[in-house]
Design a protein around this nucleic acid. Sequence first.
DNA 1: ACCAGCGACTCAAAGGTTTTCATCGAGGAG
DNA 2: CTCCTCGATGAAAACCTTTGAGTCGCTGGT
Lengths: 341, 341
Amino acid sequence: MLVSNHARPTLEDVAARAGVSRATASRVLNASPRVSPEALEAVNAAVSALGYQPNRAARALVTRRTGAVAVVFSEPEPKIFDDPHFARLIRAGARALADVDVQMVLMLVHSPDDQARAHRFLAGGHVDGALVFAPHRNDELVSIVKKLPLPVVYAGKPWGPLRGMHLVDNDNEGGAVLATEHLKSLGRKKIVHVSGPLDEMSAIDRLNGFKAALSLDDKGVARLTEDGGFTREGGRKAMSVLLSRMPSLDAVFVASDLMAAGALESLHEAGRRVPEDVAVVGFDDHVAIAEHTAPPLTSVRQDSDEQVKHMVEHLMKLLRDETVKRKQQMLPTVLVRRESA
Amino acid sequence: MLVSNHARPTLEDVAARAGVSRATASRVLNASPRVSPEALEAVNAAVSALGYQPNRAARALVTRRTGAVAVVFSEPEPKIFDDPHFARLIRAGARALADVDVQMVLMLVHSPDDQARAHRFLAGGHVDGALVFAPHRNDELVSIVKKLPLPVVYAGKPWGPLRGMHLVDNDNEGGAVLATEHLKSLGRKKIVHVSGPLDEMSAIDRLNGFKAALSLDDKGVARLTEDGGFTREGGRKAMSVLLSRMPSLDAVFVASDLMAAGALESLHEAGRRVPEDVAVVGFDDHVAIAEHTAPPLTSVRQDSDEQVKHMVEHLMKLLRDETVKRKQQMLPTVLVRRESA
DNA sequence: ACCAGCGACTCAAAGGTTTTCATCGAGGAG
DNA sequence: CTCCTCGATGAAAACCTTTGAGTCGCTGGT
């Protein structure tokens, strides 16, 4: 009987060819211990002979597991995506998830419409879990997600109470201290700060690090810092403001490389030399930026690849119902010296 | 009987509540015409009362449709992803696919390992179709994908024979002509070209446009052009080479904005003023770059959002078994003037 | 009065896998 | 030799939806 069926082989076909039952074949595929060596070999042979691949839908139907996780970026301002930082996160996510053989379903949510769609989708059981990037204050999405019976790992601290949430953060405050101490060690006396938007925890933590390193009170901080909104243009403007407010400044810690690029432009326009007149330290150590500014940017490295890898590992543990020792992890940051400070 | 089952409601529950059979409920969900208005309303009411969501796995099992499509980027050099162009494509893909309510499964393939994985995955019936970005010459992935019984739409022309392939390309050659003609119309006489890597069709097409606009033969082209590899650093180096080869050049058409940024650096270092001494035109019109170079970059716009949207529409037609009038679409490019030329 | 035709609906099979439970056979203890 | 245990296996249910075949009650034509 020449069964030249062109359709994809099923587990039934594999079992038939191996001379066992479907059940046994299934056990082999799922690495069950209760199967004889002969059966195991026969089934494996049949699998590769037939080029068998389990039908994901059928498997999902019975196991109630989809083998997919959502990667969600909640960001009201779509143009923020021009920040290469996002590309790096997405790349890291794709790699880490592929390594553990789970599908990555990417969701970008900008509008309330997107939020509703994300809600439906995540509630719909289409994924086993989610990695959520939602940095902004009072992001509706976070409250939505929190109510869902879905394992979730956050990137960084979302706004609000952190009780029970799983997250992997970078040591923003520690990095900011590093940066500021470095400027101090250079003998700089008038150090200012271009912060990120203060509706993001990472920006606040960096600001706090700056404040701590200089032992500033709230009033002092207010005078020495300006919000650059994590954009290049914002960085440029914030730098001009600071320059006019304190013409004698001799160092600046900028809370992101992209803003630092803008700040450098502003400094050049004002005729300041970097690092001779003003020393500059950025944050992110995003190579595509930091190595191409003039001069190359000294920056605090946060390893996004590592962060995402940890997030994926953490989520996988949750999916396997393993107990995680610590729900909230913090990754170290280091200073990378180049020429700007 | 208080059925306070906390599990997700099934179609059976909906049908029971609406007082119809499972079959009828199903037809309502799938917008079948053969259903009475009363039944339709009853079912819809039950659906929203119960918050019912179809089980994707069960549906996939019977329809042999997954409701997901893969978005595949094949790119041997992972750092190319730092190009904001990719972020833009991914963003566009996420949006366009969400709009038609299909899952976007993102795959980044760099290594042969990744290729094998992609092969297994795409052959495994886990997605209904794919959007493929594989610009490089002799990319193994393209041959792999071509053999699969899977609807695929390519971004741009992959290398090799195009017969029967579905693709959406930008008018690279036309755009290059536009750029070069513009430089000519400015009265420039010694126009050179920084090309992309010539193992990508888009780079070749842009080179051909340059060649055509100047009526050059192969020998002439060789002398006037230099490969910048689509990277910033490459653009810088290519520009230096061209400057030393032809110090009197007065205009350059650069095949990408990122390379143009590098070329500008090189020109500045060489003490050339832009646009007074050398006029510069880029390609891509990537706002995050073009608006932030000094001076802002005149560039050829290729609308990636539009391209991806067309790709998605095209793929959807294939999935619906509609006939597509043209398998290969070409999108127009336009010149955006800023200050560099 | 009968039948064909039609629209709306229901029944039940099919789709491919995992998993529980029962069965079977072999080997050891008595 | 019999009984028991235990490991490997198979039969069948369950997961939830779509869809073709069949049912039922009408209408309208003859």
